[in-house]
Amino acid sequence: MSVMSRSENARSLGLWDRDHEGHDVIGTRTFGFWLYMLTDAMVYAALFATFGVLSHVVNLAGGPSPAAVVHPVYAYGETVALFVSVLAYGGAMVALKAGNKAALIGALGAAMVAGGVFLGLAYSDIERLFHAGIVPQASGYLSIFFGLILYHALHILVGMVWMLVMIVQVMTRGFTSNVVYRLINLRLFWHFQAVIWVFVFTFVYLQGTVL
């Protein structure tokens, strides 16, 4: 059999996918990033398990009780700031869908500002506690209390840096598939922080008032 007819043969049998397109880059990237976010959720699960274990009265080590530490009204302010930021990022996604660069950058900026408000509120709350001598080193309960909220705040900080990077990339690159998948990943990241915050707000702050 000649080489040519053999390959004709292979083609008719459908042995090879000659026109292999490569895979969907954006879809693959966001899937991997979502898996990463889920591992981060597992980190939070472990932290919440720790929180549960260290919320017994013996874990206060004679220090302040949760009710004396948490300030739910204040935390509600943080909640609203974060939700606004998340909403603004949603706006950025709508702008992306419309291909509107200016609106996208504006929305990202708004999301950053609201994120900054969240961080500012969190900072002054922690400041207040530190001044009252309520520090992570004071008891097992306080260790995990601060551990949880600081880990969450760290995410907000990282998200804001990332937003800054994306603003620059959108301005210099436009909507290439690399920029687009990163914007979607950042959406997953940012919106996920709101989900985690619901748990933090509920279990640490709201329920903290009756511990």
Partner: peptide, 26 residues
């Protein structure tokens, strides 16, 4: 891993953005 030949903005994960949904969620 060639760059997609399609417009990245037409990707379903871009298109699923919904302003109304985000406001409702908020």
């Amino acid at each position: 891993m060639s760059a997609s030949h399609h417009d990245p903005l037409s990707h379903p994960e871009v298109q699923l953005a919904s302003g109304r949904g985000y406001v409702a969620n908020f």
